[in-house]
């Protein structure tokens, strides 16, 4: 059963990711990005990373995408629909992405990967213990980073930006 779930979630993630870059309208792109992120949270659940799945839905699909939608609706982005895609950019883009995809494929195929499923569960208790013992310094630095980002955003959105 969970095998089928993996394929369903993986297909949803990839198709919605493709629709993000195909869509002309930025609002549709944002909506498909929400779908892609939510189905990736499903993949996290299948990998027994329950806490990260919850954080993914709360932070990405909730906070970050609301921010995106606010900014899309704040700016007037209707002009996008009239512009055409640059042919040279498309050709070089597809070529370089095909090259990097080939590199990914070869490296996945030629690397010996661990195959046995482990018993590590990513629930809140275990992650919290690890976070507040081994990783307490990066955690504190991260809180300072968030404070700096908050101050910077307030400064950037002031009316008289010099």
């Amino acid at each position: 059963m969970s095998d089928y779930l993996f394929y369903i979630f993986a297909a949803l993630t990839v198709i919605c990711g493709a629709l993000v870059i195909i869509n002309k309208n930025p609002i549709n792109s944002a909506m498909f990005l929400v779908l892609s992120i939510a189905s990736m949270a499903g993949l996290f659940v299948l990998l027994h990373a329950f806490f990260l799945a919850a954080v993914q839905v709360l932070v990405y699909a909730g906070a970050v995408m609301v921010l995106f939608l606010f900014v899309i609706m704040l700016l007037d982005l209707k002009e996008e629909q009239r512009r055409k895609i640059n042919t040279f950019g498309a050709v070089t883009g597809v070529a370089s992405v095909a090259a990097i995809g080939y590199v990914f494929y070869q490296s996945i195929r030629n690397t010996p990967l661990p195959n046995a499923v482990a018993h590590s569960e990513g629930d809140t208790v275990v992650l919290g213990k690890l976070l507040f013992t081994d990783y307490v310094l990066p955690f504190e630095i991260l809180s300072i980073l968030l404070l700096v980002a908050m101050v910077g955003v307030i400064l950037l959105s002031k009316k008289d930006l010099k």
Binding site: A49, F51, L52, A118, G122
Partner: peptide
């Protein structure tokens, strides 16, 4: 992180 039985990868994702 799941297949290596090592939770440090999940902490990295959190960061």
């Amino acid at each position: 992180s799941r297949f290596n039985d090592n939770l440090n990868g999940q902490i990295m994702v959190f960061f």
